[in-house]
């Protein structure tokens, strides 16, 4: 087998730490928190929909509709936009209630660079941490060192270089950023097309040109070479930010997403349970227009939304992180 660069880096980065054998494993031969276990968890979510929820009741609606996981947060992005203020990790009580309420995986958001919020979420038992630009960044220079955690992380990206920098820091799953809380899918489309096109260009390069490519991408050359060889990211690539309808979800799947995050689009719509079911079914049958017609009927009102082009630069979450 080809050497796994990420495992090597993980090993290097975890010298002096205990992440490799952390966790309540009773058997010394068991290894928890490995890159394979973290990335593998995301592989199991493929073809599925992860839904933002703010209460245990919403979490149950999401699970009933067939969500593969829920993202527990205090306010959906549309409300963070509307209400302003500093957006932080959610109340542990609320996250615990959601963990109790459903049998599917529970994710939660930490601020960019806020490794203590991530430590709290790991101790709470969440299954994935989203180091998210939707919350107010805590560190303008450094993202969380995600290798030092047993819990896996998902991070947002607008392009390949950003995705690879997050993977180099230990992200086990990438999602497009889109423009959260707008109900407008255009940025998610741009981010997905950009990442795919940049991977396509890398794959066509002769090996000696990968060094300069790595410099331009501002990403480690070993990771750049791995992507060029694989023809895809070494982790799962989901889409997020502005998905509001079943057709939006199917669009992102046809553009090559492995799965879909839906934030405000479900619980800011007229009939959340029905819309949630429709988006799940559209994500599975994304290539079947007959199914898409059927599930798109009679959904009631979609979230009203905001045109991204009308957002002032300071209100754009996708520019947070680097």
């Amino acid at each position: 087998m080809a050497p796994d660069w990420s495992e090597k880096r993980r090993h290097i980065m975890s010298q002096g730490q205990t992440a490799a054998t952390a966790g309540p494993a009773t058997d010394s031969a068991r290894h928890a928190g490995t890159a394979r276990v973290k990335r593998g968890m995301a592989e199991m979510l493929k073809g599925g929909v992860i839904m933002d929820v703010v209460t245990a009741e919403q979490a149950r609606i999401a699970e009933d509709a067939g969500a593969v996981a829920v993202m527990a947060l205090e306010r959906v992005p549309a409300d963070i936009r509307a209400q302003g203020g500093v957006a932080r990790m959610s109340d542990p009580d609320m996250i615990s209630e959601i963990i109790e309420a459903v049998s599917i995986p529970v994710m939660a958001k930490a601020r960019i660079g806020h490794f203590v919020e991530a430590q709290v979420l790991q101790a709470l038992g969440v299954d994935y941490v989203d180091e998210s630009e939707v919350l107010t960044p805590a560190d303008p220079h450094h993202h969380i060192d995600k290798w030092s955690f047993t819990v896996p992380f998902v991070c947002g990206a607008t392009n390949l270089g950003e995705a690879l920098r997050r993977i180099a820091e230990g992200a086990a799953m990438i999602r497009s950023k889109g423009e959260a809380g707008t109900g407008e899918v255009s940025n998610a489309v741009v981010h997905m097309r950009t990442i795919r096109a940049e991977i396509g260009r890398l794959s066509a390069l002769p090996a000696e040109e990968l060094y300069a490519a790595a410099k331009e991408l501002r990403a480690p050359v070993e990771l750049v070479a791995e992507v060029a060889r694989l023809g895809h990211l070494p982790v799962v690539l989901f889409t997020a930010g502005g998905i509001a309808t079943p057709a939006d979800a199917a669009l992102m799947m046809q553009l090559g997403a492995d799965g879909v995050f839906v934030g405000s689009g479900i619980f800011k719509s007229g009939d959340p349970a029905r819309r949630a079911r429709a988006i799940v079914e559209a994500t599975t049958m994304f290539n079947d227009p007959d199914v898409l017609v059927k599930v798109s009927r009679g959904l009631g009102e979609a979230m009203v939304g905001i045109n991204v082009a009308e957002l002032p630069p300071a209100a754009r979450y996708a520019d947070r992180g680097w």
Binding site: G23, A25, D27, A29, R30, G33, G40, M41, Q122, D127
Partner: peptide
């Protein structure tokens, strides 16, 4: 038994 070994932080590899 579903999720018998625990949550994701308890996921593991073994021979």
């Amino acid at each position: 038994r579903r999720n018998a070994f625990g949550r994701q932080v308890d996921s593991f590899e073994v021979d």
